[in-house]
């Protein structure tokens, strides 16, 4: 009946207000780990609601109605009655097709993302074996004039440092940068990034998924920055490496620029003193918000069933 419409309203509201709320919230940068969780919850909730619009519209179709009836221990006729829309069967078929299409698309993009990442890493590891020199502190040195530090996540995780980066960083700064990279590897930030990437590619036209991808990319860096015990030193290393990479390269004027790096340095700089303590209350609030955000689409989709059960009870009682 009303479920698809209510879900659509939820999609519109969450997709419009969610990003605005999170982009304006100071706590997201204060506790980037919780920020990542919030963005994930928001995007998953919106994509689930979109899928459920399709499923609720398709619910009156016989096979689905029978399936739902079995789950809810009622008759298909009841299900059809409560999910029927004035739009008719055609819309139900279209919705079923769209929902299946979305599911297949997500599955395909997930597979291709995982395969591409694995392939990219495999190439890197193969070349590293012959080009790299192991350092006793657990990273690999590669001879190259560009100052780069990066990590390869996954089962055979590695941190790679170029010879140029070793030259421009002092040992203390290097230690801080390594702490940052190891934090990426420990927290499996590649998975958070892959999830955001899949959603962005599947539903790119919806702005919330693009913004979420951009935000998650920045927030994983900020969370890793917090693993370094000296914020000043890390900010210095960031500036040294970011500027060193630019040396000798003509300014292209293309590309998105490096907004994230600027935001990171400003964040590290602003927090010269100790952070304002993060309270358990705040964690609880974010966790609760996340749970509500995730539960809402499901609850909305099931509302006709709940209504059906309640009316069923009153009929019996009456």
């Amino acid at each position: 009946m009303l479920a698809p419409a209510v879900l659509l309203v939820f999609v519109a509201l969450a997709a419009a207000l969610g990003p605005r709320l999170l982009l304006g919230a100071a706590w997201v940068q204060r506790a980037p780990g919780w920020g990542i969780l919030a963005w994930q919850a928001l995007t998953i909730s919106v994509v689930a609601a979109i899928a459920l619009v399709g499923l609720t519209l398709a619910a009156p179709l016989t096979p689905l109605a029978e399936f739902i009836a079995r789950l809810c221990r009622t008759t298909p006729a009841e299900v059809i009655e409560h999910y029927q829309t004035p739009a008719g069967t055609w819309v139900a078929y279209l919705a079923a097709l769209a929902a299946a299409g979305l599911a297949i698309r997500m599955l395909w993009l997930t597979t291709s993302t995982v395969v591409n990442a694995a392939r990219g890493r495999h190439t890197q590891l193969t070349l590293l074996r012959v080009l790299g020199t192991e350092h006793p502190d657990g990273f690999v040195i590669v001879k190259h004039p560009k100052p780069l530090v990066y990590c390869l996540p996954g089962l055979r995780k590695r941190v790679v440092v170029t010879s140029a980066a070793l030259e421009v960083l002092d040992p203390h700064e290097l230690e801080l940068v390594l702490a940052h990279e190891r934090s990426h590897l420990r927290s499996r930030h590649d998975l958070a990034l892959a999830l955001a990437d899949v959603l962005r590619r599947a539903l790119g036209p919806v702005a919330v998924f693009r913004v979420a991808h951009e935000q998650v990319s920045t927030l994983i860096e900020m969370q890793a920055d917090d693993a370094a015990h000296d914020r000043h030193g890390l900010a210095r290393a960031l500036v040294t490496l970011g500027s060193g990479l630019a040396a000798g390269v003509p300014e292209s004027g293309l590309g998105a620029g490096n907004v994230a790096a600027v935001a990171r340095v400003e964040r590290l700089a602003a927090a010269a003193g100790p952070w304002k303590p993060w309270k358990r209350r705040q964690s609880l609030a974010v966790a609760l918000g996340t749970a509500i955000l995730l539960a809402t689409p499901v609850a909305l989709a099931m509302s006709p069933i709940v209504e059906m059960i309640i009316t069923g009870c009153t009929t019996i009682l009456g």
Binding site: T113, N116, A117, R119, G120, R121, Q124, L148, V149, Y150, C151, L152, P153, V177, H180, E181, H184, H189, D190, L191, L193, A194, D197, I220, A235, L238, V239, L241, G242, S243, L245, A246, V249, E251, G257, N258, A261, V262, R264, V265, E266
Partner: peptide, 21 residues
């Protein structure tokens, strides 16, 4: 690039270098 690897920092434009400094 996807999630194959994570780079510590990317190149800063000259304007961004002024900002971060």
């Amino acid at each position: 690039r996807g999630a194959a690897l994570l780079n510590f920092v990317e190149q800063l434009s000259s304007e961004e270098q002024v900002q971060v400094r």
